[in-house]
Amino acid sequence: MDPDDNLNLVQPVNPWGGNAWSMYTEYFQWRPTHNSNSKQYKVNAGETLHGSIVYNKNEDSYLLSQQIVETGAVSSQTVPCQDGKKYTIPYIVYEKLFPCGDYPPDGIVTFRNITAECDGVDCTKDIVWEAKVKDANCNMAARIDYPQPGEISITWDTSMPSAYDGLSYDDLEALNGQSGWGKSLVQSRRQVEI
């Protein structure tokens, strides 16, 4: 979720680390740059995550939470609002640019049971999702109502060539930022190379 000025974000995160999935929650702001992640847990392919972003009016804050349904492991953090700033713009994204072979071999991640409340009232059906691709790579696509109505999947093809195939790990790290799962993936690949 982003606020209207798109200068911050709050999100449950399910990153791919090069050979395994994990989960945690993240708060990020662009100016001044600040990042806060909750505790990270390993997630096995096929396990179900339940992520939530819940506003606490009494504290003017958001509780970010992510749970592995099958094991009960929970990762959470509380994020205070900045001068009453509210997060009202929902996104479902897959981010970071790598060679196609570095993406998960599953080729799909699916979001189910997507629900939203606006001022305490269910407004799930009021959200008009748009499928967009910011940086074309690996035939990545967002699919609304796929494979079932009310679900959103992101798909990719690990066998495709990529504009990022020839980049060094230093270049990939610079491209994908200095934090988060992109940096972790580059560092793990670099350790294997050494």
Rank of each mutant, 00 (worst) to 15 (best):
N58I: 03
N58F: 07
E59P: 00
D60W: 06
Y62C: 00
L63K: 09
L63Q: 15
L64A: 06
L64E: 03
S65W: 10
Q67F: 08
Q67Y: 05
Q67M: 15
I68L: 11
V69M: 13
V69T: 12
V69R: 13
E70L: 14
T71N: 09
T71Q: 06
T71C: 04
G72A: 03
A73D: 10
A73G: 04
V74Y: 10
S75N: 05
S75Y: 00
S76C: 06
S76K: 13
T78C: 04
T78I: 15
V79K: 08
P80Y: 03
P80W: 01
P80M: 01
P80S: 06
P80G: 00
P80Q: 02
C81V: 08
C81G: 13
Q82G: 03
Q82E: 05
D83W: 12
G84N: 06
G84W: 12
G84L: 09
G84E: 07
K86G: 02
K86M: 00
K86S: 02
Y87E: 04
Y87V: 02
T88S: 05
T88H: 01
T88M: 03
I89M: 13
P90F: 06
P90L: 11
Y91G: 02
Y91I: 06
I92E: 02
I92Y: 01
I92W: 02
I92V: 14
I92S: 08
V93Y: 07
Y94F: 15
Y94M: 15
Y94G: 15
Y94T: 14
E95N: 12
E95D: 13
E95V: 14
K96T: 02
F98Y: 13
F98H: 04
F98L: 06
P99I: 06
P99G: 05
C100T: 06
C100G: 10
C100E: 03
C100W: 02
D102P: 03
D102N: 14
D102Y: 14
Y103T: 04
P104W: 08
P104A: 15
P104K: 11
G107C: 10
G107R: 00
V109H: 04
V109P: 00
T110L: 13
T110Y: 08
T110K: 11
F111R: 00
R112L: 02
R112G: 01
R112Y: 10
R112M: 05
N113W: 03
N113S: 10
I114K: 11
I114Y: 07
I114Q: 11
T115P: 04
T115E: 12
A116K: 02
A116N: 08
E117R: 09
C118N: 13
D119P: 00
G120L: 10
G120C: 08
G120P: 05
G120M: 05
G120W: 09
G120Y: 07
V121I: 15
V121H: 10
V121W: 06
V121K: 15
D122S: 11
D122I: 09
D122T: 12
D122L: 07
D122E: 14
D122K: 08
C123A: 15
C123K: 12
C123T: 13
T124D: 05
T124E: 05
T124L: 10
